[in-house]
């Protein structure tokens, strides 16, 4: 358990608020996008099957490329989240932990490079 005053300080810290907001914005946006894409597909299957039965490539119907698109989108959205988190969130998080909770006891392991390892920013590259 963290010291309640450290918690309160972090909750007010502008950098912490910025990190939490940025993470939650991208997380919910991408999750919403995924839900819309998937249920868009499910609703087409359920309510407009004739649309999906249109041939587009030889006998292959529109349903297959659209389904493949949902699969590719799932992987792509996941990759987008990871690249944003790696590039921005980890750094923001490390700065906050260093500054605001030096006495928190346990430093998160990803934020404390082992002796001999290159500094965090360089390890990312």
């Amino acid at each position: 358990m963290m010291d309640p005053s450290a918690v309160a300080a972090l909750r007010r810290d502008p950098d912490f608020i910025a990190l939490a907001r940025a993470r939650s914005r991208i997380g919910w946006t991408l999750a919403g996008l995924m839900v819309v894409l998937y249920f868009g597909f499910v609703f087409l299957v359920a309510l407009a099957p004739a649309v999906l039965a249109t041939p587009v490539w030889g006998v292959i119907t529109l349903g297959f490329p659209l389904g493949l698109l949902v699969i590719v989108a799932a992987v792509a959205l996941t990759a987008i989240y990871v690249s944003v988190a790696n590039a921005r969130f980890d750094r923001m998080q490390r700065d906050i932990v260093k500054r605001c909770a030096p006495g928190a006891g346990v430093a998160p392991p990803d934020l404390s490079p082992a002796p001999g390892l290159a500094p965090y920013g360089e390890r990312l590259a």
């Binding site: 999750a31 998937y38 949902v70 799932a74 996941t78």
Partner: peptide, 27 residues
Amino acid sequence: FDGLLYSIGFLVGWPIIMFLIAERLRN
């Protein structure tokens, strides 16, 4: 074609786990 709905369904849970659950769960 109907099999596609299952395979896509099994996959799309993963982005949701990534965006909303994985990091917080680990922490």
